[in-house]
Computed example of a mutant assay.
Amino acid sequence: MSDGFVIRSLEEIRFWSRIMKEHSLFLRLGFRCEDTALINEANQFYSLFENIESRANAFTAGTDPNVIRRFNEEVHAAAAHIWVFKRKVLGLILTCKLPGANNFPLLVDHVSREANYFRNRLAELNLGRLEPLPDAIIDENVFFLRIMADHAKFISHLLDPSERKLVEQANEFSRDFDQLLYQAKDLDSMRPQSQTVPLLDQFLDQNKVSVKSLRDFKKTARDLIEACRIKSIIHPLLADHVFREAEHFLVIINMFENSLTAASPQMKMPH
């Protein structure tokens, strides 16, 4: 169990610390040149999470669990602080105190939700209170389906309007993931009665098909952007960023499918 705790903690921190670092960059790029205090704060968070990412990569599966537990606490504090920063920025945008800046309110809310997810995961790991499999399947999918729907909307709005075919494809993905999210929330509201193996298995299968399609679309868009073959204001790193998050969601879905198969003989029909 101690090895599993260390491995899981390091996997989460390695993935999400890079995401938090890149969020800092994207927010900074969206600020106006006169927003020096916000730019400096974003730069500080970039350095903070770059350091965390580097330290996480230096640890191994054999690291003392107590060392990792303390590291988790430190990273949890960093995630909480960047969450506060992101919510502050969102408040400034929504009260029209950053006119002319280029960060969408939904994007700032989106990155704050990911920071909150990250800090909650670290707290769960340290407490040893990860959700039971049926609850985790629904909750993780509700979270990530919304993330994927947001990504499609951002891509649509950051592509040049003249890229009509790609804009329409992004809009189609947005509609698809909105529908999947509504379905996931319906399954959520029906629990525990909805948490049967057949329903959860079909739920994962359906989501996996759509996430794979979106992942492939993101990969194509990333490659085209990097080759300067399409017109957009999408930073190449942002294109890679959203691609990696889709890949991460697929890893989670595959993990759930394997766990569900292994657990199905023991899982009972909920009362």
Rank of each mutant, 00 (worst) to 15 (best):
K185H: 12
L98D: 01
A101W: 02
L127K: 14
G100N: 01
F143C: 07
I147Y: 10
A123F: 13
P132W: 07
A149E: 15
R175I: 09
H151T: 11
E140S: 14
E163D: 04
L98H: 01
M190W: 13
C96G: 12
F177W: 10
H157I: 12
E168D: 15
L98T: 06
L107D: 11
P198S: 09
L166K: 10
V167C: 11
V108E: 00
E163N: 08
N102Q: 10
Y117H: 08
P132E: 10
H110E: 06
I138D: 02
K165G: 09
N120F: 02
V111G: 04
R113D: 13
K185C: 13
F144I: 11
L130V: 06
A115F: 01
N103F: 01
K165Q: 13
G100T: 03
Q193N: 13
L145W: 10
T95K: 05
F154K: 05
M190D: 13
V167G: 03
D188E: 11
E168R: 11
F104T: 06
H151W: 07
F177G: 13
E163V: 06
K153N: 12
Q183I: 04
Q183C: 09
Q179A: 05
Q169L: 01
R119P: 05
K165S: 10
L122Q: 02
I138Q: 01
R175T: 12
N126L: 05
G100I: 04
D109R: 03
N120P: 02
V142S: 08
M148L: 10
I138N: 01
R164N: 14
N120E: 06
D160A: 06
Q195A: 13
L98S: 02
L130G: 05
P198A: 10
V111N: 04
H110F: 05
L187V: 09
R121M: 07
T196M: 06
S194R: 07
L159Y: 01
E163F: 03
E172G: 13
E168V: 09
L127N: 06
R119Y: 15
D178W: 15
P161H: 06
H151Q: 15
H151R: 14
V197R: 02
K165I: 10
Q193S: 13
Q183A: 12
M148P: 09
R113F: 11
A149D: 15
F154W: 04
D150W: 02
R129A: 12
L180T: 04
A184S: 10
D150E: 03
A101F: 03
F144N: 15
Q169M: 02
D135V: 11
R191Y: 02
A101T: 08
L133P: 14
K97P: 00
S156V: 11
A170Q: 08
P198L: 05
L125R: 09
L127I: 09
R175Y: 12
A184Q: 03
N171Y: 05
I155H: 00
G100V: 08
V167K: 15
R129Q: 10
A101M: 02
R191Q: 07
V142D: 09
L107Q: 04
S112D: 01
